[in-house]
Design a binder for these strands. Structure first.
Lengths: 148, 148
DNA sequence: CTAATTTAGTAGTCGTAACTACTAAATTTA
DNA sequence: TAAATTTAGTAGTTACGACTACTAAATTAG
């Protein structure tokens, strides 16, 4: 049988990448289930949070700027932002200085939803990371070293 | 402006969950780009690798068993397995003992592809985790504690 | 042994995520 | 300043990933 040929092969659980993947999928699932109760996905929340942050740093925020900040591609970002506009969580206004660009403005409803969603996210994170809490700095350092 | 209302809010980069998400997305992207050169996605590779492993532990493997092993849902697994069968990497044979079930058999072509893909995966992993190599045990331990 | 329940798999939906390809506007440079 | 290049955003494709809903077969229970 083909499968009896032996070639060096780690069991999935022995592989850092696979572990990372599994853990993140679980975290994401928890987040999406919790956020789903208020009609948000994790990606939607994350873009709204990013917009909130960027809005505090600069007067105007374009879709491209938000995409850069959130490390999402502009095509996907565009679609999610259209969805968020339909839900009236933000507005996409034509930029007067650059007629290609859209300025993003979070609405009152959006801010309120974000505020509530953030409580949920914080709660889910606390539960999820409680097993690692003492080593949180170590954990975050290791992750940070893996970025880029 | 709405966004000037202050409410406690961590910057994304200060958040373990967000870091985890970003790192995993980057790892996944690297993997998918590398595996893409040989016509595989990470998920396809992962299911083939899981099938390979399970095949060594038991005589027969059903879709459900593979899904359980890989922590994927059976609906998604079914679709990916149909794709893999079309690519002739495996066969889905009717189980003689349980006519609801499909027995999965990796083909010669599948084994060969898996072998080559594994070299790629190993390579990408080595590069990706090189910054953490000395702390690999610590890293894997922390991740393992987060599972389930 | 029949009815109720569980199990294995498929079909189809929604929302990313990574693409290619495109339009139109802004910027650079020759 | 006209031409070449870059930039901001949209449209559409493929492939998960998490669902609901369904069929049919196997198992359990009364």
């Amino acid at each position: 049988m083909d499968t009896e040929k032996v070639f060096s092969y780690k069991e999935p659980e022995e592989n850092s990448g696979y572990l990372l993947w599994q853990v993140t999928m679980q975290w994401q699932l928890n987040m999406n289930r919790a956020l789903g109760k208020m009609g948000l996905t994790l990606t939607q929340f994350s873009l709204m949070a990013g917009l909130y942050w960027l809005s505090q740093k600069q007067q105007t925020v374009t879709q491209q700027q938000l995409a850069d900040y959130a490390n999402t591609d502009k095509m996907m970002t565009s679609k999610v932002l259209i969805t968020l506009e339909k839900k009236q969580f933000l507005e996409r206004v034509k930029d007067p200085d650059d007629s290609r660009a859209k300025q993003l403005k979070i609405t009152k409803k959006g801010t309120q939803t974000l505020k509530e969603a953030y409580q949920i996210v914080k709660q889910v994170d606390d539960v999820f990371f409680k097993n690692v809490f003492k080593d949180k700095t170590v954990f975050d350092d290791l992750l940070t070293r893996l970025i880029k």
